[in-house]
C-alpha cells in the first residue's frame, strides 16, 4: 500500500523531476563543453577581463571603485548563487544586475548603466565567476511571494502558440523540438556566451528569446515578472553548481 502511495506521489511530479536535475551542459557537444572548460578559449572571459578593469576603476562623483567598498572581488564568493534576493532597503526582491545598477548610482554617484549593457554584464559575469562551482540556493522566506508569482508565470500559457514554460521544460524535457533537445532549463551559467548570439547575455535575454519564440510579448528587462521568473528558476535549480560564465549553443 505504501509503495502504491509513493508511486502515485512520484507520478504527480513533472516528468523531469522523476529524473535527476541536470544542467544543459550535458546536452552540448564535447567540443562546446571543452570551450567552456578552458578559460583560455571561452569568449566570455573577454567580458571577465573588462569586469576586472571596471572593478578597480574609480567612477562617478564619489570617485569610488567597486574595490574601495568590496575589496578584492573574491570577497563576493557566495553572492551570485543567492540572487535574486530580497533587499530590505529596496523593499523588494532584486536581481544581481539591478544591485550593480544601484551601486553605480547610489554609491559611485555615476550615471546609470542600462540592464543588459556591456558593463553591467561584465561585472555580473565577474561576480558570478566568484561563485563558480557553488550550488544554487533555494529561495528564502523573504522571497516566498515573489517565488509564488514566478511559479504562476512559469505555468501560465502564453502567446499565439499558447504554451507555458512548464509544458516544454517540465513535461517534455529530453525530447526534441526540431533539431534541438529541450533542456530542463536551469539557469546555471548566466550570464553566458551564447554561440547563437555571438554575445554574452543574461538569463532575462534568454527568457525573452523563449517568449518571442511562442509569439508572446516579452517582459521588459528588470520587470517584476522577470525578477519573479528568475527567483523561481533559481529555486527550481537549487543544488546544481553554478557554471558562470557558461557557453551555450
Amino acid at each position: 500500500m505504501r509503495s502504491l502511495i509513493l508511486a502515485l506521489c512520484l507520478m504527480s511530479l513533472p516528468a523531469w523531476a522523476q529524473a535527476p536535475k541536470t544542467s544543459s551542459f550535458d546536452l552540448m557537444k564535447p567540443e562546446t563543453q571543452a570551450m567552456q572548460r578552458d578559460d583560455a578559449s571561452n569568449p566570455a572571459m573577454l567580458w571577465i577581463a573588462e569586469g576586472r578593469t571596471l572593478w578597480s576603476e574609480k567612477a562617478g562623483a564619489s570617485r569610488k571603485a567597486c574595490a574601495d567598498c568590496h575589496g578584492d572581488v573574491g570577497s563576493l564568493r557566495g553572492v551570485a548563487v543567492r540572487y535574486p534576493a530580497f533587499k530590505a532597503t529596496q523593499h523588494k526582491v532584486i536581481t544581481l544586475d539591478q544591485q550593480i545598477q544601484i551601486c553605480r548610482v547610489q554609491e559611485q554617484k555615476a550615471d546609470p548603466w542600462a540592464l543588459e549593457s556591456r558593463p553591467v554584464l561584465a561585472l555580473s559575469a565577474l561576480i558570478g565567476l566568484q561563485s563558480r562551482g557553488l550550488a544554487l540556493l533555494p529561495a528564502t522566506p523573504a522571497e516566498a511571494s515573489t517565488l509564488a508569482q514566478g511559479r504562476a508565470l512559469y505555468e501560465e500559457r502564453r502567446g499565439q502558440m499558447n504554451l507555458s514554460c512548464a509544458q516544454c521544460h517540465d513535461d517534455n524535457a529530453g525530447k526534441s523540438l526540431g533539431g534541438a533537445v529541450i533542456p530542463q532549463g536551469h539557469p546555471t551559467g548566466y550570464p553566458l556566451y551564447r554561440l547563437e548570439w555571438q554575445d554574452l547575455g543574461s538569463v532575462e535575454r534568454r527568457l525573452r528569446n523563449c517568449m518571442v519564440g511562442v509569439r508572446s510579448e516579452p517582459y521588459p528587462y528588470g520587470s517584476p515578472e522577470m525578477v519573479a521568473l528568475e527567483v523561481f528558476l533559481r529555486d527550481r535549480a537549487a543544488g546544481l553548481p553554478l557554471e558562470t560564465p557558461a557557453i551555450r549553443p
Binding site: 578552458d38 583560455a40 578559449s41 573577454l46 567580458w47 577581463a49 555571438q198
Partner: peptide, 27 residues
C-alpha cells in the same frame, strides 16, 4: 578591443607549446 593571450608557464627548451588568443570583435 579586449584581448586575452595565454602563454604557458614553466616551459622547458624544446617543448612544443600552444599559444591561445582571444580578441573581442563583432566580425
Amino acid at each position: 578591443a579586449s584581448v586575452l593571450i595565454n602563454v604557458p608557464k614553466a616551459v622547458r627548451k624544446g617543448d612544443v607549446i600552444e599559444i591561445k588568443t582571444l580578441i573581442s570583435h563583432p566580425m
